[in-house]
Amino acid sequence: MTGMLLHALTIALAVTGALFFLAGTLGLLRLPDFYSRVHAATKCDTVGAGAILLALAIHVAPHPEALKILVLLLLVLLSSPTSGHALARAAHHTGLEPWRRPGERAR
């Protein structure tokens, strides 16, 4: 019974991760400017990869490999938002203006 529940949780997490990757890729291709694309791409790496790694960790637990996957998850959660932040900060510093709706005035 617990095995089935764990299995269902694994599948649900993996599907969630895949959906986030899909949404992130769509955003990367379709969003209008650099900032929103960085935002979409960073979602992929944190939530998408995070959910899939968590699913894998649950799948192989209680094998010690699960700990390695959790450490990897921690690394992704630290590094991916940091790189997104650094990219957006550098773009802002170079004076790149965020996209606005046609007709909307800059504040």
Partner: peptide, 19 residues
């Protein structure tokens, strides 16, 4: 490149020191 005046972001600096 993006001018030399930009100091390193505190977030990036903290994460680099941490890892």
């Amino acid at each position: 490149g993006p001018g030399p005046g930009l100091p390193i972001s505190p977030v990036v600096a903290f994460i680099i020191r941490l890892t």
